[in-house]
Design a protein around this nucleic acid. Structure first.
Lengths: 264, 264
DNA sequence: GAGTAGTGTTCAGCAGATTGAACACCCGAA
DNA sequence: TTCGGGTGTTCAATCTGCTGAACACTACTC
């Protein structure tokens, strides 16, 4: 990837109120995005454009905080991040309620349900309820997915204003694809979004995984702040029927309404 | 290494190679440990002994990196931490292998099994396999537990050198308790540890939750680096039998051996 | 109203973190 | 052996991020 993200391309000229912190965050991100999850001091220094000596200082401080670990010559993410991530999730009441609802819902309790959050042009899965052992998801909690490739992503996009969508996906932009059914262009995505707005839920037909369909609804954002959440059910296309889909959408919407209501 | 817990106290007098980073990490930790998960700039400034203006800079940088979020006047942990935590877990091959093994193990496949990691005087749960819907655990992935209160914790302690245990739990120290059966003193814990060393596994009899028993084994640490991992099975005391326990310990040990072997 | 206690923000000056070249080290090739 | 390419570490000079008092603001109380 190298140049793709670069929050501050090259010398991070744009002033940060605490440059060391911004750089430390960049180090964590670089480690998270690295395929092997392990990088040497020199790798990081080169990739992020930070002098080696400074990088060394950052790494020492991060290591002391256990945000990263040293493994021989390599550095990798540290276990403290698991703690912090869990602390974040434990504060999301929505996740707790999500589990409770799924367990007692007539249709959903037997399905594979997930709750996800919008994060830029990706979606992060926050929790997963597995009522249907036949559908084994390869995705784990915390995993990221491009918005255009999953039903939750599209459902969450549909909630945004058009100008936000346009700035994220300017006309003519090509989208990442995973199957033959994946949406390929920004135009296709926008057409899909208007359909979603009309029918009130998103449908995904083998767009990320062959043989698998998904249904998703957004959780109405409560108040001003707080991230946008979405819910999805995953099913095998072979056994999926429209009536079943209707039932699932109904329950998803009910759960979404209850999550969106601050009074639980 | 020097003194590990110097970051606390007050003005973090010990010099860090990148003070801003060390302080930023302290901010994250403070937010994670705060009961409500939300603190104001002034709260943080006061609690960590950092001048308000500096704290403000740190918070701005952390917010830009999405490691924290602003919610009105309060600050809370940010969603990027979920991503980073997930990235850490996805790199732990042990977790993937753990799931695979549990699914096909004759006895364990029907039980609730967890894999955990030693982190100071606590244990962090990394993953959970749920083969037994009757046992609903309240703990989530990433949650922390005092070592003395769970079987995995004790199993992992038993692997440490005596002098390390002594420095963590000096004689006379009182331990946190959750039920009437919880170990209460450092002496009790050390006696338990020698039992564990003899029999090769740890047993927990309603020490953290009434009605629940646990069995745990450590994963032999492969090579020098890498964290200490442990495995545990949770069962209802009402339905637990010694023969079943023997079977589960056998499979746990087999899984532990395979995880400890770098060749998978 | 004025008063009080809390919030977060500003800015000039100085303490100090950042820097890059030089250093020490390890490994494999010639 | 000596070389070359790779690693991470050191340190004094410099430039910059940190500081603290003063500020602006809101929300209460009286």
């Amino acid at each position: 990837m190298a140049d793709s993200r670069s929050s501050r391309s090259e010398g991070l000229g744009a002033s940060s109120p605490a440059p060391a912190v911004t750089r430390a965050a960049a180090v964590l991100e670089a480690l998270a995005e690295s395929p092997s999850g392990r990088l040497t001091l020199s790798d990081l220094s080169r990739e992020l454009g930070i002098p080696k000596s400074s990088t060394s200082n950052l790494l020492l401080a991060l290591e002391e905080a256990r945000l990263i670990t040293r493994q021989g010559a390599d550095f990798a993410l540290g276990r403290k991040l698991v703690e912090l991530g869990a602390a974040y999730l434990s504060r999301l009441d929505e996740v707790q309620e999500f589990y409770k609802y799924c367990e007692q819902a007539p249709t959903l309790s037997g399905e594979t349900v997930r709750i996800a959050m919008l994060d830029g042009d990706h979606v992060i899965y926050l929790a997963r309820y597995e009522g249907h052992p036949a559908v084994r998801l390869t995705s784990n909690i915390g995993d990221k997915m491009p918005v255009s490739l999953c039903s939750v992503g599209k459902a969450l996009l549909a909630q945004l204003h058009d100008h936000d969508i346009d700035s994220m996906f300017p006309d003519g932009m090509e989208l990442p694809t995973m199957t033959a059914n994946s949406l390929k262009t920004a135009e296709e995505l926008k057409a899909e979004i208007s359909t979603i707005r009309q029918q009130g839920y998103a449908f995904e037909d083998e767009e990320s995984t062959v043989g698998v369909v998904c249904l998703a609804v957004p959780v109405p954002t409560h108040g001003a702040h707080g991230p946008s959440l979405g819910l999805s059910v995953t099913a095998l296309k072979a056994t999926y029927s429209e009536e079943q889909g209707a039932l699932m959408v109904k329950e998803l919407k009910e759960l979404a309404r209850s999550l969106g209501n601050p009074m639980g």
